[in-house]
Design a binder for these strands. Structure first.
Lengths: 214, 214
DNA sequence: ACTTGATAACTGACCAGTCAGTCAGTTATA
DNA sequence: TATAACTGACTGACTGGTCAGTTATCAAGT
């Protein structure tokens, strides 16, 4: 009989994670306000009281979800991108493809979706996400583009604004599909989107004559 | 003593609009779940009971807000764009600038923001928005790009996906600013974004040698 | 001009349902 | 046996929605 089969666990260090999983699932389904703590408890296979042994409030569940998801980004951030020296289109394509793979798995989509949905009610979470994720990725990308412009590998474009042109189409595509159900006949078609996006983007940011895709 | 000063109004046709204004304001501030009908009533200068004289439920307020905002789009839709014959970059630039002007006024931003925030809890509203707004604008844009590709005025790009490249950067920019407070030092800087966006986009979708901005 | 009755417009106390959070008691583990 | 882990009935606060009653407006009659 291993630890996970036991009903009680002397050192119950796995419980919080299980509860966060359950909370994420139910919050995603019904939204924060509409879910009862009882439901989270049932989904986690415990009673409501147990939830309150590990988390002081319903809101703390929400914070726990975000904190857990954001942590790895802070760790294995984008230090490569920050000091990349070669053709800037290479790390840009890499970032886009990473995003593509990430978004292709609905499991990974859950946390950003939940954040988007509830963010206005949790200013502290917005701040956390802004600081830990956006505050790291955006400056790195901006600097990358700026170096490309300085070295002449990219046309004279506005680095800060170009970041929006890099991630925007993907954001729009996913938002259309996830939020409004507007998607191509064959499904999400992320590969088709990425191919077309990089085609246009690289044509758009490369100096005349140098637009072959890396 | 004009009609608006009277406490009671024999034909109270202005009341529903006032209540929708009030509801939009409070919903935007605190979110749907967190606002009490009492607050909406107070903001509209009436009592709670009066709200229920005009709307059958709290949800109906939400639906009313969206319906009212969506109506004009359905009317003066984009029939011009659908049958435009010349350089497709012209109506594309026009659409982008229209969006720019629209988003520059925070007042216009309120409804889309509210929709984004609450949409997962109101499937009927998502459907309404999808049908009345997206279902009209997206096909028109797609057809426009397709005609440009067919006529050789645009490169061989995927029309359906290119729509995401047209609106995506703007969506991303506004989302970053509105949701996370990530914005340039000088403010929203929509003009800077649009200039850079169209620069990249037109370079990206135009055949070699024909990329001067219309 | 001035009642006066009819009724549209509005009010707010109240009800019934909901749910986050508590805690006295129970059960498993070492 | 000691105690860590867990349970679930309970409570207290809250709020969407109702409705019996009140107030303003209008128009007809005088």
């Amino acid at each position: 009989m291993n630890t996970t089969d036991k009903k009680f666990r002397r050192r119950a260090e796995a419980r919080p994670d299980e509860m966060l999983d359950a909370a994420l699932a139910v919050f995603s389904e019904k939204g924060f306000a509409a879910t009862k703590v009882d439901e989270v408890a049932r989904r986690a296979g415990v009673s409501k009281g147990t939830v309150y042994l590990y988390f002081p409030s319903k809101e703390a569940l929400m914070e726990g979800i975000v904190r857990r998801a954001v942590a790895p980004i802070a760790e294995r951030a984008v230090p490569d991108m920050a000091q990349f020296e070669g053709d800037p289109r290479l790390p840009i394509a890499m970032l886009v493809h990473t995003l593509q793979n990430l978004l292709a798995d609905p499991h990974n989509l859950a946390v950003p979706r939940l954040i988007l949905r509830e963010i206005m009610n949790f200013p502290a979470i917005a701040e956390l996400y802004r600081r830990e994720v956006l505050g790291k990725v955006i400056p790195a990308l901006t600097a990358l583009v700026a170096r490309g412009v300085a070295s002449g590998q990219l046309r004279k474009i506005d680095p800060e604004m170009t970041v929006r042109s890099i991630v925007g189409p993907i954001v729009a595509h996913v938002a259309l599909s996830e939020v409004f159900g507007v998607r191509p006949e064959e499904g999400l078609a992320l590969d088709r989107l990425v191919e077309n996006h990089l085609d246009i983007l690289f044509h758009g940011i490369s100096p005349a004559g140098g637009e072959e895709t890396p």
